[in-house]
């Protein structure tokens, strides 16, 4: 009751919630309904025949069972490497003074400015020369470049926001540099870094262009398979079932990451 009363006090919030719910979740509802339908013909509002017939058919496909673990593995590796090369860079941008630091920091905007399509052939040639086509390493590299912007900018802002007086106080009482970093600096930047990690993971998991160009034929990721199951497929249900399955991990992540994402640190990464 008390919760309902509280809701009543916030009509604007309820309005925003309902409007946003219709806009964001509306399209997703049709996906969910399709996933559990065997037949759905206009003008019926709901599926004309419910059932799980297509679920077993979808998961019987050997390529899906191979692609899912591969995609998870790739996204993890890319996120990890991205963190290993970008976080030190972010620390440098935030804490060390060097000539051209601003130029270098802003230059990472270039990773998002040129239409990737225009770079295809040249990138393919580079990877062919390096013998990286159709290898996991090749896909990792091409996906890594997409992650640089967020993985550098967001943590840079977070490191800049760290309260230096605390660090200095700790150094004054004789704590080692490593200990100061570990116990004082790191906890302050963890929310922003975990947000950046999550954005990187999700973005990498759903990346297709690079995975197609460099991965095929040896490395076939989940979204590349989904493309063929969604666009040229007569049976609408396959795509619906796959989408639904992939949302389960996503929603779990959203649940855990909401706090990190809401932090000021994330948005500060964009220079706000």
């Amino acid at each position: 009751m008390s919760f309902l009363r509280k809701l009543g006090k916030d009509p604007f919030g309820i309005f925003i919630f309902i409007a946003l719910f219709l806009f964001i979740i509306g399209p997703m509802i049709s996906v969910i309904l399709w996933a559990f339908s065997v037949q759905w013909r206009y003008p019926s509002l709901l599926p004309t025949q419910w059932g799980l017939k297509f679920w077993s058919q979808t998961f019987k496909r050997a390529d899906i069972l191979q692609a899912l673990p591969l995609s998870l593995f790739l996204s993890l590796i890319v996120t990890l490497i991205s963190a290993v090369i970008c976080l030190p860079a972010a620390y440098a941008f935030a804490r060390l003074k060097f000539r051209g630091s601003q130029f270098f920091l802003l230059s990472f905007l270039a990773t998002n400015a040129f239409p990737r399509f225009g770079l295809y052939i040249t990138i393919a040639v580079i990877f062919l020369k390096l013998n990286l086509v159709s290898t996991v390493l090749g896909v990792v590299l091409i996906q890594l470049v997409n992650t640089l912007l967020f993985m550098i900018w967001i943590p840079t802002a977070a490191f800049k926001g760290v309260d230096k007086s605390l660090e200095e106080a700790a150094l004054d009482v004789g704590a080692s540099r490593f200990r100061v970093f570990w116990q004082i600096t790191l906890p302050q930047v963890i929310p922003a870094i975990s947000a950046a990690l999550m954005l990187t993971f999700v973005g990498t998991f759903y990346e297709t262009q690079g995975a197609i160009l460099i991965g095929l034929p040896g490395v076939r990721t989940m979204p590349v398979l989904m493309l063929s199951l969604i666009n040229n497929q007569l049976v609408v249900q396959y795509g619906a079932i796959l989408s639904l399955t992939l949302w389960i991990p996503s929603l779990l992540m959203l649940f855990f990451a909401r706090r990190a994402l809401s932090g000021k640190s994330l948005a500060a990464g964009f220079g706000v």
């Binding site: 390529d63 076939r220 493309l227 063929s228 969604i230 666009n231 040229n232």
Partner: peptide, 8 residues
Amino acid sequence: QVITGGGA
């Protein structure tokens, strides 16, 4: 067999 149908 590598299925590329449906992509860009």
